[in-house]
Design a protein around this nucleic acid. Sequence first.
DNA 1: ACTATATCCTGTATGC
DNA 2: TGCATACAGGATATAG
Length: 279
Amino acid sequence: MPELPEVEVVRSGLAAAVGGRRIDRVTVLHPRPVRRHTPGPDDFAGTLAGRTFAVPRRRGKYLWLPFDDGDALMAHLGMSGQFRLDAPGSPLPPQCRVVFTFADDGDELRFADQRMFGGLWLSAGGADLPDEVAHIARDLFDPELDRSALVADIRRRRSGIKRVLLNQTVVSGIGNIYADESLWRARVHYETPADGLSRARTVALLDAATEVMAEALAQGGTSFDALYVNVNGSSGYFGRSLSVYGREGLPCLRCGRPVAREPFMNRSSYLCRACQRKR
DNA sequence: ACTATATCCTGTATGC
DNA sequence: TGCATACAGGATATAG
């Protein structure tokens, strides 16, 4: 599932692939991915034609592609969204939802999304910070993040720490996979009340999250097509680097005890019950 | 204001 | 073989 590292790989791939290029035509093959464009699919296609992309930006899992006119194309990959570059006229996969062709003769940009939790829409005046992203907290790679304020915010909350890590208005970019990886690395049980964590443990947890995602980013940037995000979560994109997520029954890489999987928020939490004890 | 849950969506895997 | 169900989990609307 695309979380911060995957979205950043896509962002940097798009910067190289579409920055400075002028859109010729947009074709919407399925209306659902443009549902957040309230004037509708036809307006979406019409209003984007003729615009020129600037440098794509990101906050957490939100991605936006500014145009040189001050508006921006918003993009969220959701669960299964992908951007692909392909030769015009080459066969379209069945999950392809939107196609952008360019005024030059280069590859066309395709947005594919199997489950269609993702979306594309125009944000008027959104080139700098779109309104739709204003409620999203800064992520752990944002140079303007105030880490001590974040630590204080986390330690005020009464939810379990994993819920807090997944709350994009507290800190953005972390999803189910990197939450579990971070908690394992910092040896924190996912149900630990956030307001019961010491300052030092909270700092260590954020450091772990930063490390885990930086390592994933380093791997993803070098070993895969930069514009491809695998849909298949546990066996997918950064699967080789995962220490606990998806490893139910396999030995904990630290202590050898079997990794457990527990139901959590209509999904799963993976943890080592020996390394990550409730306190 | 904060917290928790239901919902959307479809391909794949599994059980009977 | 075929049908039913579980599962994957982003963000958001709604309820408490």
